[in-house]
Simulated assay, not measured.
Amino acid sequence: MSRSYDCTDPEQRAAGLTDAASAVRRGELVVLPTDTVYGIGADAFTPAAVASLLEAKGRGRDMPVPVLVGTVRAANALVENLGPYGQDLIDAFWPGPLTLICRVNRSLSWDLGDSKGTVALRMPLHSVALDLLKETGPMAVSSANRSGAPAATTAGDAEKQLGDSVSIYLDGGPCDDNTPSTILDLTTAVPRLLRRGAISVEKLRGVIGYVATDGGSESDG
């Protein structure tokens, strides 16, 4: 049976974070608020838990699960390197709605789906999410909805779609902004925009100068 905690109440928040961290360590699924939409998460290093996450969403391995981190140090441990632009982007936009695609550290033992040697990383700007991630370490997190359905902007929305497949629901109230994160691929010579989102191309260009979009490279010049 699923358990839900009102994270706007300090006592429930503390109890919910403790319960959720324990559930993640057991390989169970939790729903958590982020700065974009609600996410469904699992321990990134437990393949059976990630498989359960994909099953709960009705999603295939062809769409690998992104990873949320609570610290920049955790992100650095997951990748071969951040390339020439990664650290500047992190300094400017993390925590926040920017997802970075990087080459994965090949020594890691995990299975996020058919990721082709890459990982999508983000540090969310939400205190509940960050507190949980600092307890659990990196989590595989996707939007808390069935595949093809609207993203959940409340814990109730998520529970209606995912039900008892999730052990813990952390309710942080309605999302302030359901604009998705911007996704930027750092595995190519020039950073390449994969999804327009909360951080504009203009802001990205203000930090790193060049961003490749569908129309080719864009720069301030």
Rank of each mutant, 00 (worst) to 15 (best):
M123R: 13
R25M: 14
V104N: 06
V50G: 05
D171I: 08
D91E: 13
T34K: 11
T188A: 02
S200T: 15
V119H: 04
R205N: 00
I168T: 15
E11Y: 08
E11I: 11
M63D: 10
E28P: 00
L170Q: 11
D88K: 12
P95W: 12
L68V: 12
D131P: 03
V31S: 03
S109K: 14
E202F: 09
E11S: 12
L132Q: 12
P180Y: 10
S4H: 00
R205D: 00
R61Y: 13
I199Q: 07
A144H: 09
P124Y: 09
G96E: 12
L32K: 00
A75D: 07
A92T: 03
G70C: 13
R13N: 09
V141F: 06
R61D: 13
A74D: 15
V50C: 09
S167C: 11
C102T: 07
D157Q: 13
A155M: 12
L89M: 10
V190M: 00
G27S: 07
L32V: 15
D164V: 00
W110N: 01
D6G: 06
Y85L: 03
N178K: 11
P150V: 08
V166W: 03
N178W: 05
T187A: 04
M63V: 08
R122M: 05
Y210C: 01
C7G: 01
V31L: 04
S127K: 09
L54P: 04
S22I: 07
V69Q: 04
I40G: 04
S52M: 05
L82Q: 08
L100Y: 14
D88P: 06
Q87A: 15
A14W: 02
T188V: 01
V31K: 01
L17V: 04
L78I: 03
R192W: 01
N81C: 01
S181C: 10
E80G: 09
L194T: 04
N178P: 15
G41K: 03
L186K: 08
M63W: 14
P84S: 14
K116V: 07
D185V: 09
V119C: 01
I40K: 03
A51D: 09
S181V: 13
T71V: 00
A155H: 14
R106E: 11
A129N: 15
D88N: 11
D177R: 14
A92H: 08
T153Q: 07
A189C: 01
A158H: 09
T213Q: 04
V128L: 07
G209C: 11
P10E: 12
P33W: 04
A42S: 11
T187M: 03
N76C: 05
Q12S: 13
T118G: 06
Y5A: 05
A152L: 10
L17I: 06
D88G: 11
S167W: 06
G148V: 06
D9K: 10
S22W: 05
V79M: 03
K203T: 03
S4T: 15
D62E: 15
I199M: 12
R106T: 12
F45E: 08
V69L: 08
D176M: 10
S217E: 14
I208C: 02
A129L: 11
I208G: 00
T213L: 00
D35F: 13
V166D: 04
G39Q: 10
I208L: 04
A74R: 02
G86T: 13
L121V: 06
Q87N: 14
F93N: 10
P84H: 07
E28H: 08
E28W: 14
Y210K: 01
N178T: 07
D19Q: 13
T36H: 07
G58V: 01
